[in-house]
Simulated assay, not measured.
Amino acid sequence: MKRGGGWPIPQPGDVLSYAYLWAREADAGQEDGLKDRPSVVVLATQETGDRLRVLVAPVTHRPPERPEDAIELPPLVKRDLGLDRARSWIVTREVNSFRWPGPDVRVIDDGTPFYGAIPDWLFLRVRASVGTWAGRGIRVVGRSE
């Protein structure tokens, strides 16, 4: 089944171009993310009817303050996704939640928002880390209701 621009429904592990709104920005009253960035789909769940809720974790070049807050994105995975060569991390301590496709999803060069997907072994690490934070105060910023 396809939605939004004829795009496929995102699957956990997919990497999307997304205008991510950091929790600190939302706390300061911002409503829009300042930068389009790769974001990893952590969860995609069916809501009532045909609505789909997606949770994404952001990818950033900024090293985490604490190692347990993020997982480094390996250079070969970055290459396979078509991303730059600079070190990057998937932040697992906060996520954005939105209805698919939502106005904050951004189209990249190929006409879709999809860079590709991270390998299963890496997704399992991301999911486990997000799950750990879910029990200890993960920040979920709700978007585009």
Rank of each mutant, 00 (worst) to 15 (best):
residue 10 P to Q: 03
residue 44 A to L: 04
residue 23 A to F: 05
residue 113 P to V: 06
residue 45 T to K: 06
residue 2 K to S: 09
residue 105 V to N: 01
residue 55 L to P: 10
residue 46 Q to Y: 06
residue 141 V to W: 04
residue 34 L to S: 15
residue 130 V to F: 07
residue 80 D to V: 08
residue 37 R to Q: 14
residue 116 G to V: 04
residue 65 E to F: 12
residue 113 P to T: 08
residue 42 V to F: 13
residue 33 G to Y: 12
residue 140 V to S: 00
residue 66 R to I: 04
residue 76 L to R: 10
residue 97 S to W: 00
residue 57 A to C: 08
residue 40 V to T: 12
residue 108 I to R: 08
residue 107 V to C: 01
residue 132 T to I: 03
residue 39 S to C: 10
residue 10 P to K: 07
residue 1 M to F: 02
residue 43 L to A: 14
residue 137 G to D: 11
residue 30 Q to F: 14
residue 68 E to H: 06
residue 57 A to P: 03
residue 137 G to T: 05
residue 101 P to Y: 00
residue 93 R to E: 13
residue 75 P to L: 15
residue 99 R to K: 05
residue 15 V to T: 02
residue 52 L to V: 10
residue 74 P to Q: 10
residue 91 V to L: 10
residue 41 V to E: 14
residue 13 G to Y: 15
residue 4 G to Y: 02
residue 73 L to F: 02
residue 80 D to N: 13
residue 15 V to A: 02
residue 83 L to D: 11
residue 103 P to I: 15
residue 82 G to I: 13
residue 107 V to Y: 00
residue 52 L to P: 00
residue 116 G to K: 11
residue 36 D to M: 01
residue 93 R to P: 06
residue 89 W to H: 02
residue 88 S to L: 02
residue 71 I to A: 04
residue 21 L to N: 14
residue 67 P to V: 09
residue 108 I to K: 04
residue 134 A to Q: 08
residue 47 E to V: 06
residue 3 R to V: 06
residue 106 R to N: 06
residue 2 K to L: 00
residue 62 R to Y: 08
residue 126 V to S: 06
residue 92 T to S: 10
residue 114 F to P: 03
residue 47 E to F: 00
residue 136 R to P: 01
residue 68 E to D: 15
residue 54 V to E: 09
residue 130 V to M: 05
residue 53 R to E: 05
residue 120 D to M: 08
residue 142 G to M: 00
residue 143 R to M: 02
residue 140 V to R: 07
residue 122 L to R: 01
residue 113 P to K: 07
residue 130 V to T: 05
residue 29 G to W: 08
residue 75 P to Q: 11
residue 72 E to M: 13
residue 34 L to M: 14
residue 11 Q to H: 04
residue 138 I to Q: 00
residue 110 D to P: 04
residue 12 P to V: 11
residue 25 E to K: 10
residue 64 P to V: 15
residue 44 A to R: 13
residue 88 S to H: 05
residue 24 R to D: 10
residue 71 I to F: 09
residue 49 G to K: 12
residue 16 L to M: 05
residue 41 V to L: 11
residue 44 A to I: 00
residue 38 P to G: 11
residue 59 V to F: 09
residue 96 N to L: 12
residue 131 G to H: 08
residue 56 V to F: 02
residue 11 Q to S: 12
residue 46 Q to W: 09
residue 13 G to P: 08
residue 140 V to N: 02
residue 50 D to L: 10
residue 14 D to P: 08
residue 92 T to Y: 03
residue 127 R to S: 15
residue 138 I to S: 07
residue 118 I to S: 01
residue 2 K to T: 02
residue 52 L to I: 12
residue 90 I to K: 02
residue 11 Q to T: 09
residue 16 L to H: 04
residue 24 R to A: 11
residue 24 R to N: 07
residue 81 L to V: 07
residue 55 L to A: 11
residue 69 D to P: 08
residue 48 T to P: 09
residue 74 P to H: 09
residue 67 P to D: 15
residue 27 D to W: 15
residue 36 D to F: 01
residue 89 W to I: 04
residue 118 I to H: 01
residue 77 V to N: 12
residue 6 G to V: 07
residue 82 G to Y: 05
residue 130 V to Y: 04
residue 48 T to S: 07
residue 70 A to T: 12
residue 106 R to C: 10
residue 58 P to I: 14
residue 108 I to F: 03
residue 18 Y to H: 15
residue 49 G to I: 12
residue 60 T to R: 07
residue 77 V to R: 03
residue 111 G to C: 03
residue 120 D to L: 12
residue 57 A to N: 12
